[in-house]
């Protein structure tokens, strides 16, 4: 099928969906890339932290009557603090061990969290309502854009760009970049690197939790939602280049779009196209498209 033979609304709808998925990939891969850069661990718990964000959003509403807007503020804070505790208590003691241990540990953490939620809430999805203020949508001729999806797109891109600027332009960001390159020397320069590591991991977890809140009204809230997404996000990070922040975000959006377009042209390939691209990139440019060569 030719892309350009499609009715505009369908093409546009798919592009929108691609960008939307891409913005979730972006939020998660950004956190993953920053954590990988500084801690040198592939954070398998990232998907669980995202799932936790969505569940917390639902729990806040169900048990405490706190709605979406409250969750948007509370959940990232809870996720961030939990992340910092996990880093301090579980990950930090492994800092000097082989990085494989960190990977196994975070994988274990993910399984424990996911398993716990499966026992408590079952594997079926739980719906979460789109907040009142963002219900409905905008109509441009034949094209309909749901308000909530526009909101997610704008918010997630703002957060990603904001974080990118914070990392590239601020002093704290300079500490982070420097510690990513040479943590020893940064510690000699008077900076508390273990604290920087905890804060960074906490920020990554907070961002995953934040994405979870945004995801709750779109995707159904269920214990495996993180695993499914995380596998794709890993591919995104590999394609973009481990440790490259802007690269992770741009790659996430582009791959989201490619995935959506594949769904139109050849739906059967939609679920594997990102991985095919990952394999090609690994063969042609193992450091990733935006990765720095060592």
């Amino acid at each position: 099928m030719d892309l350009f033979d499609l009715p505009l609304p369908i093409l546009f709808g798919q592009l929108m969906l691609g960008l939307l998925n891409g913005s979730f990939y972006a939020m998660l891969s950004l956190g993953l890339a920053v954590i990988f850069g500084l801690l040198n661990i592939v954070n398998f718990a990232h998907g669980a932290q995202y799932m936790l964000g969505a569940f917390l959003t639902w729990m806040l509403l169900t048990y405490l009557g706190i709605g979406f807007w409250g969750a948007l503020i509370i959940v990232p804070i809870v996720a961030g603090l939990t992340g910092m505790v996990i880093e301090r208590v579980l990950i930090a003691p492994l800092a000097d061990a082989d990085h494989l241990y960190g990977l196994l540990l975070t994988f274990g953490i993910a399984l424990v969290i996911q398993g716990g939620f499966q026992v408590a809430y079952g594997a079926a999805g739980i719906p979460y309502r789109i907040p009142e203020a963002l219900a409905g949508g905008q109509r441009f001729g034949a094209i309909f854009l749901p308000n909530y999806r526009l909101f997610v797109l704008v918010v997630s891109l703002t957060v990603c760009i904001g974080l990118w600027l914070a990392i590239e332009k601020t002093n704290l960001g300079a500490y982070l970049r420097a510690a990513t390159e040479n943590p020893e020397l940064v510690s000699v320069f008077g900076i508390n690197v273990p604290l920087l590591v905890s804060v960074t991991y906490g920020l990554g977890a907070a961002l995953a939790g934040f994405a979870g809140v945004l995801a709750a009204p779109i995707y159904s809230v269920n214990p495996t939602m993180g695993v499914e997404l995380l596998i794709i996000v890993f591919a995104v990070v590999v394609v973009g280049g481990m440790g490259s922040i802007a690269g992770a975000v741009v790659t996430a959006l582009v791959l989201g779009l490619i995935e959506a377009l594949t769904k139109i042209v050849y739906p059967e390939a939609a679920s594997i196209v990102i991985f095919v691209i990952m394999i090609i990139v690994l063969m042609v440019r193992p450091t990733g498209i935006f990765g720095r060569t060592a």
Partner: peptide, 25 residues
Amino acid sequence: GYVPEERGIFSSLSVRENFTLPRVV
């Protein structure tokens, strides 16, 4: 003040950022 072997200039930092990175003691 420590100047390491190989100088330890951070490649992802600008000259200015490298200059201001070490904390004033």
